[in-house]
Amino acid sequence: MIEFETVSKTYPGQSVAVADFSLVVPSHRTVVLVGSSGSGKSTLLRTVNRMVEPTSGRVLIDDEDVRERDPVALRRSIGYVLQHGGLLPHRSVLDNIATVPVLKGTPKRRARTAASELLERVGLDPKIGRRYPGQLSGGQQQRVGVARALAADPNILLMDEPFGAVDPIMRRELQEELLRLQAELHKTIVFVTHDIDEAFLLGDEVVVLREGGVIAQRGTPAEILGAPADDFVRDFVGADRAERELHITTVDGRSIAVDGTGRPVGVLAP
């Protein structure tokens, strides 16, 4: 469980990035922080592994203040996936995945074997383990990034716009892969994105942020889509967008879902 207790962050010489943010992320759930740039979502994420120290307030992991923990040990105990993969260009794919176990003292050979298994787990051919990140496609790099985050078997995964830099088709595949993994692994995931559709797809719970880390609304995707708290949320989730306005028409005795422009988007299951 991760708890944010009235967390504020002001960067020197700039206005407030996050003010009085409080949130509980329950264990084994995926919580998505969604907002446009300037909403402080990345800042919030980074307070969890102490890449950012809050100006005031505190962050607790299983009731323990993260400030009590050694930052290096803390970071090794949390999986972290970044937008650009953040892979080390001079290390082979296997060594990248094995980074944290090796830093923690696992023998290199054992760490590599485990890394090779992880490659399969994230849907990659173990043969690419000997290559360097520069030889992989963007999607492959992101999968390796996920594998690296899982290598030390952390309870918590922090994901900072991990699929933001790949093309839409690849992004869709990666999202499905993450859902599949999470169904098996039950990690506590904090996921940051500016893409509301991604948030609705992945989040057990979605937190919509305004400028400065103010929570505009939190709830399940259905709750937010069904009852936007205010105009900001309505606008942000695009509740008024034509493709969200579905209605049912009957064609040849089958119920067809049609969006606001009249384009059919699916068939109702019997």
């Binding site: 960067y11 740039s37 909403s39 800042t43 900072d160 716009e161």
Partner: peptide, 8 residues
């Protein structure tokens, strides 16, 4: 310079 140090 961006307000927040987010990767763009």
């Amino acid at each position: 310079s961006p307000r927040e140090k987010e990767p763009v």
